[in-house]
């Protein structure tokens, strides 16, 4: 310990003018970075707790000026938001489970060194990362498969993604073959090997992929607009936000339209949208700090070079 301290001390003594300038610059940079990243989020929370008509005047920064919870009462009281929240949770949970199960199984198959059609099957999936049919053919296909105007269009089409599968495969390839071989000697079939031996060792990468899929599912809105525009019962929180955003933009967000109100009481599109935004981002903001090591490792499995 004392030696380390000494080194630190020596380093301090050595600091040149340039180094001080650098530290000052770096501190300012990091400070600005944090402020610019956090400010908009805090500002949204502040507006969401502010009285609607008062908020139109602007000038609310970090703290509400006229405190009010009416925006939340309005948002949480709306039937369409409630339905959307249920659908969002359902698509996140079902989508993640389906994606995890299928990607893991496929990754297991292509990561077996002895699998006869390994390279062919891998190539088949890698190609899907680079070539896709495009918006129109895909829409027509989903129509033919009766996936449009249904819940399943959210979870079935994107279920297996070559990227997630390859991340899992890379991880599985790192597990020693001897485990598989000894299990085979004991008479275990491939499914048993997958379920009892490989999967328990792959929990970290499973968590990573589940996280990627869950975030994607939670944040999607384009598929709602494209495939389920006519079906209000399959709308999601993000799509409700899109609608609220466009109502705010039409209103122009300026003080001339002070009388435009939605619902009753002192709420305006701006404040209602802020409240809905907070409701939508809250679960993610609360969860992601605890999942850091999973996505960091997932990205580095994906391709950092040693």
């Amino acid at each position: 310990m004392s030696r380390e301290k000494e080194v630190v001390k020596r380093k301090r003594m050595k600091k040149s003018g340039y180094d001080y300038a650098f530290i000052v610059f770096n501190t300012i940079f990091m400070f600005l970075f944090v402020v610019i990243t956090l400010y908009p989020v805090i500002n949204t929370v502040a507006i969401s707790f502010n009285d609607g008509t008062d908020a139109v005047r602007g000038g609310i920064y970090l703290w509400p000026r006229m405190f009010s919870t009416k925006n939340y009462v309005t948002v949480l009281g709306k039937q369409n938001i409630k339905t959307a929240a249920v659908i969002t949770v359902l698509r996140t949970v079902i989508g993640s489970i389906l994606a995890l199960a299928t990607n893991a199984l496929l990754a297991f198959v292509v990561s077996r060194k002895k699998f006869l059609f390994k390279s062919g099957v891998s190539l088949f999936w890698v190609i899907t990362m680079y070539v896709n049919g495009g918006l129109v053919p895909v829409l027509l296909l989903y129509k033919d498969l009766h996936l449009t105007n249904s819940f399943w269009v959210y979870v079935i089409p994107g279920m297996i993604s070559a990227f997630n599968m390859l991340v899992m495969r890379t991880y599985m390839q790192g597990i020693p073959d001897s485990l598989e071989e000894s299990a085979q000697l004991d008479g275990a079939g491939y499914f048993t090997i997958f379920w009892k031996i490989i999967s328990p060792l792959c929990l970290p990468v499973y968590a990573t992929v589940t996280l990627f899929v869950a975030v994607y599912q939670w944040n999607s809105w384009f598929d709602v607009m494209l495939y389920n525009r006519m079906k209000a019962e399959y709308s999601t929180l993000q799509y409700e936000l899109v609608k609220l955003l466009s109502s705010v933009m039409q209103q122009g967000g300026n003080a001339n339209n002070i009388n435009t109100t939605v619902g009753s009481g002192n709420v305006t599109p701006v404040t209602v949208r802020s409240a809905a935004t907070v409701v939508t981002m809250l679960p993610i903001i609360c969860l992601y700090p605890f999942l850091q090591r999973y996505f960091v490792s997932g990205l580095t499995i994906g391709g950092v070079k040693e």
Binding site: M129, S161, A162, F163, L166, T170, L299, I301, G302, G303
Partner: peptide, 9 residues
């Protein structure tokens, strides 16, 4: 990120 995994392969 997709292509990163592809590269690794």
């Amino acid at each position: 990120v997709k292509s990163r995994a592809g590269f690794r392969r």
